[in-house]
Amino acid sequence: MQRKTETITFTILPDNILHIECAPNTIMTLDEGKESTRIGGELVNHQPLPMLCDLTNVVRMTHDCRQHFAGPEHAKIFSKCALIIRSPIAKIIGNFFLGANRPLRPTRLFTDCEEGLKWLKKQ
């Protein structure tokens, strides 16, 4: 199952993991964040799933968008989240998100997709 916006691709992987990937040079604003939560929610049928979110192509995430992703509305669509950070900018956004915004669900940073998936599959 897959849905796409101009900047984000949402896929339900065979292991029932919600995979989110952004197009190169994506700037995430609050509107984009809310749209992402809406589409993600529809795709998981409002039953929270583990989420693999690749931040590598994100070049900016606004303050209100980070707060939204760390808040209760977004927490409804995922049970835990592996953030993939393979660029210096993604790394700093990921670290900021974890340190300053403190998401409500367990969230970890990975530079390797397989490691992230392995953690998401753990009970």
């Binding site: 070049v59 995430m61 303050h63």
Partner: peptide
């Protein structure tokens, strides 16, 4: 305004922008 190089210097610029936003908030 970070360049489009997406290098470490851009990462520092993005980090400082975020730090400024958080402190302001």
């Amino acid at each position: 305004n970070p360049s489009s190089k997406n290098d470490v210097v851009d990462a520092i610029a993005v980090g400082l922008n975020m730090l400024s936003e958080e402190l302001n908030s």
